[in-house]
């Protein structure tokens, strides 16, 4: 019996298998990019309702970055915003019949966690240089270097597992209930799954911000104290 956790391969491109989650991701990417381009094409100083809604999303992301990271949102907006939007849309793609959310697959969540892991390193080096970033592992003292190193990996791993567990469990529950009870019974669970998906997207983005902010703030010199 095939494991429900295993990726379902749709086709192969030569020796490379293409999973359903990858295709779903491509579709989501296409929709997001085309939608974004469509929105941007009609931008004006006097916004329409649609433009105002999208500007509200951008302004909310900026506000969250400012509140969480205590920094200007410019360098982080695209990364954090895209993570949130992608996770959100992926989680909610379960509404489309026959579509399994890409985030219900461990590879997608691992990819997202890997990107956050790399982003922490990138933004840390960008803020304080390679030496400054490496020094952060020796805080508060060099004894903590192994622990800090393990922490940086495990928190990325926890990101992956948290998202995967929540989304995958929701999909599993809905699938099991659907197979046992019937067509309309899983609807409350699906609604709950939507709520869980939105919350998980928010948590994923917030944790990514926290990790990046932690790396950035630790590499910066402490503010001068004047008496």
């Amino acid at each position: 019996m095939k494991s429900p956790l295993a990726s379902s391969i749709l086709f192969h491109v030569g020796p490379v298998p293409v999973a359903a989650s990858v295709v779903a991701t491509w579709v989501i990417m296409t929709i997001l990019v085309l939608g974004g381009m469509l929105v941007v094409r009609g931008l004006s100083l006097v916004p329409s309702k649609t433009q105002a809604a999208f500007e509200l999303i951008v302004a909310t992301v900026d506000a969250q970055i400012r509140d969480t990271m205590q920094a200007e949102p410019g360098p982080y907006r695209a990364f954090i915003g895209t993570l949130f939007v992608f996770v959100f849309v992926s989680n909610w793609s379960s509404l489309v019949p026959g579509v399994e959310p890409p985030t219900a697959r461990i590879e997608t969540d691992a990819a997202l966690a890997l990107l956050v892991f790399l982003a922490v390193i990138w933004y840390g080096i960008r803020a304080g240089g390679l030496r400054g970033y490496l020094k952060t592992f020796a805080t508060p003292n060099p004894i903590m270097i192994p622990l800090n190193f393990i922490e940086s990996i495990t928190r990325a791993f926890s990101l992956m597992v948290r998202l995967f567990g929540n989304v995958m469990s929701g999909v599993f529950v809905v699938g099991i209930v659907l197979s046992l009870a019937g067509l309309l019974v899983p609807i409350p669970l699906m609604a709950l799954d939507l709520l869980t998906g939105a919350v998980q997207a928010y948590i994923f983005a917030i944790l990514a911000m926290v990790f990046i902010a932690s790396a950035v703030s630790e590499t910066k010199p402490p503010p001068a104290v004047s008496s």
Binding site: V18, A19, S21, V22, T25, W26, M29, L32, V33, G36, M37, V39, V40, F54, V58, R77, A78, F79, G81, T82, L83, V85, F86, P102, R105, E107, T108, A110, A111, L112, L114, L115
Partner: peptide
């Protein structure tokens, strides 16, 4: 694939939406 996809998506949305 997913890593590349999300990285590309980050770049595309950053280029065509967020900025």
């Amino acid at each position: 694939f997913q890593t590349a996809n999300v990285a590309i998506l980050i770049w595309l949305l950053g280029r065509f939406f967020w900025r």
